[in-house]
Structure formats: C-alpha cells, structure tokens
Design a protein around this nucleic acid. Structure first.
Lengths: 195, 195
DNA sequence: GTCTATATTTGGATAGAC
DNA sequence: GTCTATCCAAATATAGAC
C-alpha cells in the first residue's frame, strides 16, 4: 500500500510473466518486456543475466505462488456440492492466472519448464483429489473410483479447455460457453463418481 | 512406391510440420527445417516465400488431412462400446499426429493458426457427436444430454492430456497412464451419458 | 541501480550463377 | 529447381558512464 510503485525488479518480473504467457519463450521479446515495465532493456540483464534466466525466475515464482496457495476450506453439504465448488475454484484460478495454463502447455519449449509444469499439475490436482477422497469416505462416491485419476481428469478438462484459443473459449459473442463449461465439468464428474 | 524419394517440396513440408510441432512458430528455425529436409535454405523461400508462408501451408495441409479423414464405420453393438471405440480412435489419431495437438494449443501464436484450430476442433468432435446422438436415438443415452458438449469434453480430455509435456504423458517409466487414459475417458463419458 | 551506446549473433530473406 | 554467397534487420548481450 505504501509503495505506490513496485520495484523495478518486480515490474520486470510482472511484465515478463505476461509476455511469456502471451508469446511463449521463443516468441517473447526482451525489448517489449522492458518497454512494458518502463525500464531500460539492460536492467533486465543486470537483474536476471539472460532471457533464459528471466524465464526461469518467472517459472519459479509461478510455482511458488501455487505452492503457497491454500484452497478455501471445504464447503459444507453433500459431496457433489463440494465437488462443484472445487471445480469452480480451479476453473476460476486458471482463468485469472493464464500463466498457469500457458506454462502447462508450453512446457518442453522453454528452459526447465517441464519441472515447473509437473509441480503445478500436481498442486492443482491436490484440492480436487481431497474432495473426491473425502466424498468416498463418507459414502457419497463409488469407492472403486481412483481419486487421483478423477482429479487429473478435472484439471485436464479445465486447463485443456482454457488452453484452446482464447478467441473461442472466451468469445465475447458466445460468453455462454465460458460460463457453462465448469458446471458441465462438475456435472460430468459427479455422474462419473456416483454409485 | 515408385518414387523412392519424395519431391523436395514435400520433404520441406514434412520437415516443417515436425519442426513447427516441436518448437512452435516462433521457436522454429528455417535453417533446421532445410537441414532436416536435406535441401538448401533458399529453396524454402523459393517454394513458400517466407517462414509465415511455409507455416500457413503446413496448417492448410493439416486441416486438409483431417477434413478428408473419414472415421471408420461405427462398430456394431451397444452404444457404450461404440463410444469406447470412438474415443480410442480419437486418442490414437491424436497420438499419431502430434501436429494436431500442437496446432490446437499453439493457436494465436502463429499466423492464422486460430482458424485452422477451430476447424480441426470441429472436425475431431464430429465423429464423437454422431456416436452420442445415435446412442440417444436408440435409447442408450440420456436424451437430455447435449451431444455437442459431450463431444467437446472428449476432445478436450484427449487433446488436453496429450498436450501436456510429453515427458510425462508418454513417460516410458510409466507407460501405464498413456494406455489407461483413453479407457478412463470413455468410462467417464459412458457414466455421464447413462440414464 | 539505472541509463546510453555499442557489440555480437542469429536468423530471415535476396541476388544471381548453374 | 537447386545451389553458393551475401545482405539486412532484429534480438540478445556487453561496456562503461553517471
């Protein structure tokens, strides 16, 4: 609050995250990042050494953010409601943080992106997995279902959908789909997990 | 058979498809494509004018291939079996043609990739959509289900999974997942569509 | 820490011979 | 149609002043 303007380093990191998200590692331009951050290009090399170094720093901070992210306490009520809420949480998180989706689907194309992608995937699935397990324990869901698999299916359904061209998934002329998707995902899984 | 060696033009196009698939548009290198095709770099410009022109030609040929692709006649038997077979077909197609997945998730980053991605998506969903509709008509599936939505969910589940880092989805130390995934997808959808 | 100026390298593209 | 040689612009990176 007191700092009206973040440090140069932070502004660079923020601008870089956006640029890498939009263009991928190869398509990103250091000059654009500098311009967007309002600093000299050279300052980027001063802080991060190289474009690759900057990319790795960005990946690390993204991973950090999801690692420390604690999902809200479980909603009370029947397991299907909790599942619905968990899917909505995930979908919202991914919508608000396009860098997660981008990193997931850009891995293997940037330096060391694979490892980051793996951790993000695991972390994102965790919340879901717990909800499913708990639902099983309480007898709401089939006990021969695999919670890890179900969680992965949800993550793929959400991230995979949002990873498709934004012009379509967030098409202003058809906002319906963007709204309907998470609901449909929750419904599908609820049926998949029912006895 | 008679041509033991395809034309230069074709070899360039093939090499380009692989390079763009692996590296994306921005990461692809014209020199590497030439090397892989066993031709001079200049020849690429002679045929395709520019890197962007080459990319668009590759996209067009990919779209063409899926457009003319006719899915095998429906398997006889109960709808859930047909669904299972259709999912397996889709998953196999996508595994064998990584360029489809790549194009789907690289759209918006290459010239005119969006349009191609859209057509591919639609085309891939078609087979599935028919199977679901037919299953509904025969009373196997809930008639309040939306076949288009179900088909899209299947495509996202398959393409979204294969789009994740190959080191994971096709991890040799864990080939189990690569094998299990399509089965799990079919099972999930079957439950989702059941009465 | 931040800038100006510049070097270096890479990569897309052209000219022209054969 | 295919090659050799070369150009030019763009992009990463360095040097050094303030």
């Amino acid at each position: 609050m007191t700092d009206r303007k973040p440090s140069s380093r932070k502004r660079i990191a923020d601008a870089a995250r956006e640029e890498f998200t939009r263009c991928g590692f190869a398509g990103a331009r250091v000059a654009r990042i500098a311009g967007e951050a309002g600093v000299n290009k050279q300052l980027i090399f001063y802080y991060f050494g190289s474009k690759a170094g900057l990319y790795e720093a960005v990946c690390a901070s993204i991973v950090d953010a999801v690692d420390t992210y604690t999902p809200p306490a479980a909603t009370a009520g029947p397991a299907t409601e909790q599942l619905k809420a968990a899917v909505a949480r995930l979908y919202t998180s991914l919508s608000e943080r396009p860098e997660l989706v981008s990193l997931l689907y850009d891995s293997g194309r940037g330096p060391s992106a694979s490892r980051s992608a793996r951790r993000i995937m695991t972390q994102l699935a965790r919340d879901l997995e717990e909800v499913v397990s708990r639902g099983q324990g309480l007898g709401y869901f089939r006990d021969d279902a695999d919670p890890e698999l179900a969680a992965q299916q949800v993550v793929v359904l959400c991230a995979g959908y949002l990873g498709l061209d934004r012009e379509r998934t967030q098409d202003p002329t058809n906002p319906a789909m963007h709204e309907r998707w998470p609901t449909a995902v929750a419904e599908l899984l609820a049926r998949g997990l029912a006895w």
